[in-house]
């Protein structure tokens, strides 16, 4: 098993064993981060962010800096050669020679896949439109693994924007590959999980899916509640966004029937879908989740770069 030189466009690009390799390395990094502080010395991460991102970009940058590497790139398409009409292929061909590993966020779905076809350096999908966000999935799975002890066999509820929410699409696709997963999909009718994705998952995997518009109805059976933001930038008109944006707001009161060890996750940033009164609840793990994101990305980049991660005895 060797991830050196590989791209990560879709979580399905990695087998479960390869994902496990990432989580095992991330676990070692969590336990002793300093031991890995020089493994990427002399390596460069290229960040190609065609749409605004704070968390994902900074998380990648932090991850590379914490391993002793360097970073370059752009965080706004308007200030790069992209604004002059340069194609993705040309941009990536050039940046692939400037950096050793690239992360791309793009508003158009499939753009990182296109980039990977022209890049000599490994390309990591940092989010493409409403399609996929595989490193958020690595982060989510690492969080579940760290805090629940295993990834398989949980009842996972997804709540909010399941239509455009790429984090949801990536995570549910990957969790379906693990044994005995049950999903409760909570959303307004207009923001339901795309039918094509649901049909595809049900056909391929032995999973159970329940769809509802009621957040509290299934609260008592949920092991992991994954909340999402209704994303304004995914709507073509303001009226639809305004009508749906406050569909689900989680507060302490709504948690009264929840299991004592239920985990509340959120890819962040949140707006108002999780009340601040929930932050102090021990079941709220979204800030811990963001922290694990650094380790998931550190482990991923180290493995794609093929650097020596055997730090014991150094």
């Amino acid at each position: 098993m060797n991830l050196k030189g590989r791209h990560l466009i879709d979580p399905n690009d990695f087998t479960l064993e390869e994902l496990d390799e990432v989580f095992k390395l991330a676990d070692k990094m969590i336990k002793d981060r300093n031991a890995y502080s020089k493994i990427c010395q002399g390596r460069i991460l290229g960040t190609c962010f065609y749409e605004p991102s704070t968390r994902t970009r900074l998380s990648f940058e932090s991850a590379m800096l914490r391993m002793g590497g360097s970073i370059l790139g752009f965080s706004d398409a308007a200030t790069s050669s992209v604004s002059k009409g340069e194609s993705i292929a040309d941009t990536i061909r050039v940046l692939g020679s400037y950096a050793d590993v690239l992360v791309m966020r793009h508003p158009k779905e499939g753009a990182p896949k296109l980039a990977s076809e022209f890049s000599t350096a490994p390309v990591i999908n940092g989010g493409d439109g409403g399609h996929q966000h595989p490193t958020q999935t690595l982060t989510d799975l690492l969080t579940i693994n760290q805090l629940k002890g295993k990834i398989e066999g949980h009842t996972v509820a997804f709540c909010g924007d399941l239509k455009f929410g790429r984090t949801v699409h990536s995570l549910i696709s990957t969790l379906s590959r693990y044994a005995k997963s049950k999903f409760i999909l909570i959303s307004p009718i207009e923001l339901k999980l795309p039918e094509s994705l649901k049909v595809n998952l049900k056909r391929k995997y032995d999973i159970e899916i329940v769809e509802t518009e009621d957040l509290e109805k299934h609260m008592a059976e949920i092991d992991i509640l994954y909340m999402t933001r209704i994303q304004k930038e995914r709507f073509f008109n303001e009226a639809d966004y305004t009508r749906l944006k406050d569909s689900y707001i989680l507060n302490r009161n709504k948690l009264k029937d929840a299991k004592p060890d239920m985990m509340i996750m959120h890819p962040l940033p949140r707006v108002n879908e999780i009340g601040y009164d929930v932050d102090g609840d021990p079941r709220a793990v979204y800030f811990k989740q963001a922290e694990y994101g650094i380790y998931a990305r550190m482990a991923l980049m180290a493995l794609l770069l093929g650097v020596d991660v055997d730090v014991e005895g150094r």
Partner: peptide, 27 residues
């Protein structure tokens, strides 16, 4: 949007309605 991106599809369903899945966005 991108002229380098030639649409590529894989056959997904050929029973009642012939459907192709996009290699890039998976729709």
């Amino acid at each position: 949007f991108d002229e380098y991106a030639v649409p590529k599809f894989r056959l997904s369903n050929s029973n009642k309605k012939i459907l192709y899945r996009c290699n890039y966005c998976e729709e």
